[in-house]
Design a protein around this nucleic acid. Structure first.
Length: 208
DNA sequence: AGGACGATTAACT
DNA sequence: GTTAATCGTCCTC
């Protein structure tokens, strides 16, 4: 069952924990890969200094400002693609970064796209790894995940927030590190390792 | 026009 | 534990 758009048209912080256990299905490249999500992060747009949309609408962030249920793909570190589910009402930027999951279909295709993975739990353990498994890049930016005819879809979104959800600071950011907007399934082996965010400090250490 | 930096990963010591 | 890879985006001249 493809996701109901109205359930995604809420703040990213509300939607994010509810996507744990949901399945994203990709038919990109005439091969199917499906991933059950185990780790996500919420980004709330113009109020959130860690969000790409913090400084307003640009060509890159335009999809984040659009209606919920679309795919926001971005390129980072000169080599990696990452994928988000757009949330919130039309005109308000919000998105959930898909950080990790378990490959539940197309495992041979996922392995071929991720030759460096030594174990199946590493295939989609990290946002760029997850996007690579699914074959997501620029061409998939903006796709409608709620359309049953779309090559990339969101399915099996739980009707209720899962009973077991862990939360903590988001990974790899240097602003708003006090917010615990990363959500994951505790004890799931596909959850990515935590890395403290931001670039290395230069200058005196923080005053306690 | 120039430069700093990044919602990361893999391969090192 | 550290670091190179690698380029689009955005900010500041």
């Amino acid at each position: 069952m493809t996701a109901d758009r109205s359930r995604l048209a809420r703040p990213a912080v509300v939607v994010a924990p509810r996507l744990l256990g949901a399945v994203i299905v990709s038919d990109v490249g005439d091969a199917r890969v499906a991933i059950r999500l185990s780790e996500v992060e919420a980004y709330e747009g113009q109020d959130d200094p860690a969000s790409h949309a913090f400084r307003g609408l640009t060509p890159r962030t335009a999809v984040m400002f659009g209606p919920a249920g679309h795919l926001y793909c971005y390129f980072t570190y000169g080599m990696h693609w990452c994928a988000n589910v757009v949330c919130g009402v039309d005109g308000v930027a919000a998105a959930v970064l898909l950080r990790a999951g378990e490959v539940v279909d197309g495992i041979d295709v996922a392995r071929s796209r991720r030759p460096a993975a030594r174990k199946d739990t590493e295939l989609a353990r990290g946002p760029a790894r997850l996007a690579t498994c699914l074959g997501l890049a620029a061409a998939q930016n903006g796709l409608d995940l709620c359309d049953p005819a779309s090559p990339v879809r969101l399915e099996s979104v739980p009707s209720r927030r899962p009973a077991l959800v862990a939360s903590g600071p988001r990974v790899g950011i240097s602003a708003a590190t006090e917010l615990t907007w990363r959500f994951w399934r505790p004890d799931d082996p596909t959850v990515s390792p935590f890395k403290a965010g931001g670039r290395k400090r230069v200058g005196p250490p923080p005053a306690d």
